[in-house]
């Protein structure tokens, strides 16, 4: 577990801007004959209400044609409604390719105003399920942890 964290951290390029913390999202390995990596979105919403800000959205960026990778973004249905649909994709520093099972770091941008937020992580998998995990997040980030049950495993917030 720890090893995979370090590995993942090494694989993902470090953000150039300073970050206000890190969210580590773990995509579980699921033993099914037809496995497709999930689409995943992570976003925050101010507790007192206000616009959602997408921190990451992982989808089939390169797929074009009649059924481009964007076609299934609405399957991340809560993210889509809360803010995904107003995001112009691809979004620099936010959108990226789908990720394999394992732990992946999402830096919290340094320019997020201090305050109380809710972090949402939603994953939807072709021929699989969908799961939304929500947990409180304060900026500057304090350590926190949540876990999904099916499409998501541990979601860890760390101050650095």
């Amino acid at each position: 577990m720890k090893k995979s964290l370090i590995l993942a951290a090494g694989v993902i390029a470090a953000p150039t801007a300073a970050s206000a913390g890190t969210i580590t999202v773990t995509i579980p390995r699921i033993a099914v004959s037809e496995y497709h990596v999930p689409y995943l979105a992570a976003w925050i919403e101010p507790v007192g209400g206000g616009a959602a800000r997408t921190l990451a959205v992982w989808y089939d960026v390169d797929k074009v044609g009649n059924e481009p990778g964007t076609k299934w973004l609405a399957d991340l249905r809560t993210w889509w409604r809360k803010g995904g649909r107003s995001l112009k994709l691809p979004a620099n520093g936010v959108s990226g390719a789908t990720r394999a099972p394992g732990a992946h770091r999402i830096p919290i941008p340094a320019n997020i105003k201090p305050g109380a937020y809710t972090l949402h992580v939603e994953a939807a998998r072709e021929d699989g399920g969908r799961e939304l995990v929500s947990q409180p997040l304060t900026i500057p980030a304090a350590n926190g942890k949540a876990s999904g049950k099916s499409e998501l495993s541990a979601i860890v917030i760390s101050a650095r």
């Binding site: 009649n66 964007t70 973004l73 609405a74 889509w80």
Partner: peptide, 8 residues
């Protein structure tokens, strides 16, 4: 009723 692009 919800689509994410305009090619469908």
């Amino acid at each position: 009723t919800v689509l994410s692009d305009t090619v469908q």
